[in-house]
Computed example of a mutant assay.
Amino acid sequence: MNISPNSVVALTYELHTTNEEGQQVFVEKADEENPLVFLYGVGMMLPKFEEHLAGSKTGDEYSFELSAADGYGEIDPGAFADLPKSMFVDAGGEVPAVGEVIPLQDNEGNSFRAGVTAVHEETVAVNLNHPMAGKNLLFSGTILNVREATQDELAHGHAHGADGHEDH
């Protein structure tokens, strides 16, 4: 079976980006013991990631690069903020350090993460861009399995494991 909408895909991958010197930097991987399993065509994955896999079948190897624009977007210079130190201390916590990724919540209760870029006398500067924003993504791996989604998976909008029987 070839990868098409409403199929469940299990695959391995290695993800790399490139640094300022043009060298590849390892980010993460999914291997045969812990593959990435997803329902294809329902918006769970980056659209261009899925586009590159379309038509592939079990055993196929792949390797492609997504531009920053096709991945998590370019860096938005307006997505930086200074938060008062008191919001951390008053909540009983500590002031985060530069380089930490901290959980935040917007006014509607949606959770997201921000990277701490600087700590000033009264404020903590954070980057609200996705950590992979502005970076090209280099994927390589192997398609381990492609199967039709079950009716339950289609109704729930996600895969229930490589065999379709994983509880959630």
Rank of each mutant, 00 (worst) to 15 (best):
M1L: 15
N2G: 06
I3S: 02
I3H: 00
P5K: 00
N6G: 07
N6I: 06
N6W: 02
V8C: 05
V9F: 02
T12V: 10
Y13W: 11
E14Y: 07
H16C: 12
T17H: 14
T17C: 12
T18L: 12
Q23S: 14
E32S: 01
E32F: 05
F38G: 10
F38Y: 11
L39F: 00
G43F: 02
M44A: 08
M45D: 00
M45G: 00
M45F: 04
K48V: 05
H52S: 03
A54S: 13
G55V: 01
S56C: 10
K57T: 00
K57P: 01
K57H: 03
T58Q: 14
G59Q: 03
G59Y: 01
E61N: 14
A68R: 03
A68P: 12
A68K: 04
D70C: 08
Y72N: 12
Y72F: 15
G73L: 08
E74A: 15
D76P: 10
D76I: 14
F80K: 09
D82R: 08
D82H: 14
L83W: 11
S86F: 15
M87Y: 12
F88M: 09
F88N: 11
A91N: 13
G92I: 09
G93C: 05
E94W: 06
E94C: 09
V95P: 04
P96D: 13
P96G: 06
A97T: 15
V98R: 08
V101M: 14
I102S: 12
Q105D: 03
E108H: 07
N110D: 12
R113H: 15
A114M: 09
V116Y: 02
T117K: 10
E121C: 11
V124K: 04
V126G: 01
L128D: 10
P131A: 07
P131Q: 08
K135S: 13
N136L: 09
T142H: 09
I143A: 00
L144S: 00
L144R: 02
R147H: 04
R147K: 10
R147S: 06
T150Y: 06
D152Y: 09
A155N: 09
H156Y: 15
G157P: 07
H160A: 07
A162Q: 01
D163Y: 14
G164C: 00
H165F: 00
